[in-house]
């Protein structure tokens, strides 16, 4: 608690959530979450759909109010106009009028700030050169997101929120937009990025905060997150019961489909030795390092026994 109070007055903290809870009727979107965003860092809030990422951004932007806890942004209340003039945002719901031109949108948003960035700089930073006179409705998906980035940059923000900036884009447009976002981060701006794409978090952020069902379950640099979740995947055809495998040392997850059994473990050797000892008919043994994506799925609490919407069914052996 003391630490928290201290952090609130700290000029090195650009934004903070202190013991914040936010509910929508029966659903608790954020459950007693505390998070400090340090000035100059790029934080990726990573989590599956419904983890509470957009709610966290809404609270920091001041468009939502917490049910409990405190939100501080740039040393003040995020709903204040003074605070709002120092932040920029790319939101997920962000339809802007289709029959206005890129340049008109940028000029309008620049007019909201006392000392805006000049138009040419904004257009160049967002990679919109040559599209100034294009109507918003005629832009491609990637170009639309670039315009939203441009609008977010108009006020020379000290703090920039990017809520799922590339989730609607194809791989090519996504990687192209990363370049512009990377340049904004390299310019020293504080950036809070939400994503469900671990590759994006890894490519852009200095720090990853893993959010799952309204709780922060891990936080660290991309390397730390990878190390913490470093694991092996063991795959084989076996008749052993999944609950028996789950009891083996270091096993974090067991999943069985029609044919194969997939086992995640911190170190593979003891598990393999035990498996071979227990099942002499075991075949098709494969051992590999987990990808970052799998590491992420290991950390995110699975729905026991039920299929996840974004992947195969994972059975948590620890329960």
């Amino acid at each position: 608690m003391n630490h928290r109070l201290q952090a609130m007055g700290d000029p090195n903290i650009a934004a903070s959530l202190a013991n914040v809870t936010k509910r929508y009727r029966a659903i608790t979107a954020l459950d007693d979450v505390s998070l400090d965003i340090r000035a100059g860092e790029a934080v990726a809030v990573l989590g599956p759909n419904g983890a509470g990422k957009t709610t966290a951004v809404g609270l920091l932007l001041g468009t939502l109010r917490p049910d409990a806890g405190h939100v501080r942004v740039l040393g003040g209340d995020p709903t204040g106009r003074r605070c709002r003039q120092r932040i920029g945002a790319m939101l997920q719901i962000s339809g802007v009028p289709a029959t206005l031109r890129v340049r008109e949108h940028v000029d309008l948003f620049r007019s909201y700030y006392p000392a805006p960035l000049d138009r040419e700089t904004i257009i160049a930073a967002a990679g919109l050169g040559g599209l100034e006179h294009r109507l918003y409705g005629k832009l491609s998906g990637g170009e639309k997101q670039r315009l939203h980035l441009a609008l977010a940059l108009c006020g020379k923000p000290d703090l920039l929120f990017l809520d799922e900036p590339t989730s609607s884009l194809d791989v090519e447009s996504r990687r192209a937009l990363w370049q512009e976002i990377r340049a904004v981060i390299d310019a020293g701006r504080t950036v809070v990025l939400t994503t469900h794409n671990i590759e994006e978090a890894d490519a852009l952020a200095d720090r990853i905060v893993l959010l799952d069902r309204g709780k922060i379950i891990a936080s660290g640099t991309p390397t730390e997150i990878k190390r913490a979740t470093a694991a092996s995947r063991i795959s084989a055809v076996t008749t052993l019961a999944t609950c028996a495998i789950g009891k083996l040392p270091g096993v974090t997850k067991v999943h069985r489909d029609a044919r194969r059994t997939e086992i995640f473990a911190s170190s593979p050797e003891p598990v393999v030795r035990a498996l071979l000892g227990m099942d002499h008919d075991l075949t098709d043994l494969e051992v590999s390092r987990t990808t970052l994506e799998e590491a992420f799925l290991t950390l995110v609490r699975p729905t026991t026994g039920a299929a996840r919407s974004d992947g195969p069914a994972y059975v948590d052996s620890r329960t």
Binding site: T63, R84, I93, G95, Y112
Partner: peptide, 17 residues
């Protein structure tokens, strides 16, 4: 229509009067 598109919500995140 603009309420449906989220234009109002976007404006609220900016210092738009």
């Amino acid at each position: 229509i603009e309420r449906g598109q989220g234009w109002m919500l976007l404006r609220r995140a900016f210092p738009a009067p």
